[in-house]
Simulated scan of single mutants.
Amino acid sequence: MTKGIHKVHSFMLIALLLIVTVLAGCNSAKTQQTQSSSDNQTTTTPLTPSSPSTSEPESSATQAETVKLTLYFPNADGSALVPAQRTVEVSNQEIIKAMFKELSSPPSGLEPPLPKGTILRSAVVKDGVATLSLSSQFRTNFGGGSDAELMTIYSIVDSITNLPGVQSVQFLLEGQKQDAILGSLDTSVPLKSNPSLIRK
């Protein structure tokens, strides 16, 4: 009788140990599966919108635009302005900046209207007035003379007033308005084009 009880107890103990072992193994496998699933989620994260492969194309505002310009250059003896056609590519609507660059390179037989070293600091068009801020070299490197002054000023004015929406030009020197930026011609107010100086 006692031996029978011992056998039952031994059997129950072995069965209990087996159950505990099986349960422990299941929990371990479940833990590993959860961790593996978590690792897979980390490595398959989709690209963010800022990734180079999904970036937006450049805005059309930065693309170059071809523009035809009519510029006016002083003739050899400084008595008149002569029209010249140029085709340029500009971006961000920097047409006036492109015009100043072209005015520095006159056609053969014509003179550059800008004093050497002149830099266009800024150009703003508002209410039909193009306000230009020029560097100090515009005045300090100007050779002098009333005829040369007319040619220099109106080469710029007549060229820029050819642009749509521009009726006059206000000159500034390093951002400051001048009564006579080159000596005698009144530049305290915006200047309109002077067709009488143009040789047809």
Rank of each mutant, 00 (worst) to 15 (best):
C26F: 15
P190W: 02
V88Y: 01
L23G: 07
S37K: 12
P113D: 14
K68P: 07
V22G: 12
T161N: 08
G145W: 13
N141E: 10
E58R: 02
D186Q: 04
K97T: 02
S10A: 12
Q93M: 00
M151K: 02
Q35D: 11
Q33K: 14
K101F: 01
T152K: 13
E89W: 03
V20F: 13
S60T: 12
K3F: 07
G144Q: 08
S50R: 04
Q170A: 09
N141H: 12
I14K: 11
S60K: 13
D127P: 09
A64R: 03
K116F: 14
K68D: 12
S60P: 01
T62Y: 14
T44R: 02
P52G: 06
V166D: 04
D147Y: 10
A64G: 08
R199P: 00
L173I: 03
F100N: 06
F100P: 01
D147N: 12
E174N: 15
I95C: 09
A84I: 04
G175M: 03
P115K: 09
P57S: 14
L132E: 02
E102R: 00
K177F: 07
N141C: 05
E58S: 13
M1V: 07
S79M: 01
L114P: 04
S59Q: 11
V82S: 11
T44G: 04
L17I: 10
A148S: 14
M151F: 05
N194E: 15
S36F: 04
K200A: 09
K192Q: 13
L191K: 12
G109L: 15
S133K: 03
E111Y: 15
P46E: 04
L197F: 02
A24T: 11
I181N: 04
T118K: 02
S184E: 14
L150H: 09
G117M: 13
A148D: 15
P190Y: 08
M99E: 11
Q176A: 09
G144K: 00
K200H: 10
M151A: 10
L185G: 04
S133N: 04
G117W: 12
S196H: 00
